[in-house]
Amino acid sequence: MAIITSLGLLVSTLAAALSRMMAEEISAWTPSIIHGLVKLAVARLTDNQRARFEEEWQSHVNEVPGIIGKLLAAIGFLVAAEKMSIAARHRQIVEDWLTKVKQVEASHSKLAETISLLRDDSRITAEEHVKIDPIVDRLSSLLPRHKEMCDRLATLARLYGATPAAPTRRLILFTLKMRVQASFEIMTTTAETLENKHSVLVKLLADRGSR
């Protein structure tokens, strides 16, 4: 009986010592763990946010009392960083699209200018008109459709920008994004081609005029 009591006492003393040691170990390791969690979190952020939030979040943790509170705050930063990086990606997509909208709208003006040049410029001979008039007519017929596509892409880009990336809308937005992306790629490539053709045409007519 005495042996069992002594054994029990020994075990409880050892358990108390062990739990005290573990608490001290956790206490000693916590600053490094928290520092590591903050570093992991800020790695998800954009370049211009990283330095600010690393300092800000380390400071935030410093204000939180208790080890558990500090660890929970640091884990929360991982969640915050994920949400912030999704929002930043969303914003970047919208900015890129709005830049492309401007490019596409500029290409529409270029197309109208090119048509006008081909129709009305006196430096183009009657013989050349026979060949190019059918092409000009075809381009003219495409103008309203091109304008409609420019306007639709602009509206869709702004709609995507205005819609928060909430989970319930993500699938629709993903589909929208794929469709709009593809249209943008085609239209910006066409815009670049038109820009080149227009420059060649203007130069050709200018050379002709100067002879």
Binding site: H60, A73, I75, G76, F77, L78, V79, A80, K83, A87
Partner: peptide, 23 residues
């Protein structure tokens, strides 16, 4: 107020608080 003080005042966890503050 600091972010930590805002968290205490609102009861929001850091994962929710900072995206809201940035927006």
């Amino acid at each position: 107020i600091s972010g930590a003080e805002a968290g205490r005042a609102t009861g929001l966890a850091s994962g929710t608080l900072y995206p809201i503050l940035i927006r």
